[in-house]
Amino acid sequence: MENLLSIFSVVFLSQVFRMFTPYFFGAIGGAYSERGGVINIAIEGFLISSAFSFAVVNIFTGSIILSFIIAMLVNAVLSILFAIFTVKLKTDHIVTGVGFNLLIAGLADFLIAYFFKTSSNTPRFEEIPTIEVLSFLPFLSDPLIIVAFATVPLSAFVFFKTRFGLRLRSVGENPQAAESLGVKVRFYKIAGVVLCGIITSFGGIWLASYQNTYSQGMTAGRGYIALAAMIIGKWKPVNIFFVCLMFAFFEALEIKLQIIGSFIPSQFIQSLPYIVTILVLIGFIGKTRPPAADGVPY
């Protein structure tokens, strides 16, 4: 019992927020894409591409700012490509996403082997100095976590209070009607996808900067779990925030249980986030409704 109680400490709480960050950026990014009607399972790939490019640029230049910018740019370019396929060529969104994930994971694996002559991970880069913005709240010490917090009201405002958000949603709900009112459907769809790519890059950057390296498989399906979080969060920023917190809680619990050790086999503890994802989806899905034209090429 004492063991169980010791789990819930400040350290644990900060761990929850650490796990929360990549889920959240993936999920809120996904919401931008799907509000515009493009299902984006390439989020997993986008996490990989940004984590990888952040790590590699950091190793070669040592500049955090430059690596940050390059990682964002890489994701912007990839998401424009993704938009060309799904919006311009009207290919199937899910198959396109699978293709992107294969390609990006392959590129990362290849380039690791090419640059560093190993097959699984990049060398470690210099630890990034933590900027203690709000040092009295230990779990808020990372600037990206603060950005994540700020993204919640900001995204809610963009979706529901701005002209851009209204049009983005109209394109995802009923593109024909939107077009008849003079909304440039393709523009908004592409904008949604590109915003998704850029926002998701924060998640990837965070993953790499937290471990000071990029290693093969480090995303471990977080992009897909983020999509599940977005669905359960009903494509709404505030809901997504809380769902991601819940997923982060389970992942932090997983790590904690592995450290303190328990009678439960570690393989089962490791698959906790995946099991929870399926269970929560089963429990919540009936009560959610995706944008009406989500996944329908237009």
Partner: peptide
């Protein structure tokens, strides 16, 4: 050349078929 080049080839094939 690292054998991972074939992973890239796979992803590219999927995307070019789609297009």
């Amino acid at each position: 050349v690292p054998k991972e080049i074939m992973l890239i080839f796979q992803g590219l094939v999927v995307l070019s078929i789609l297009g």
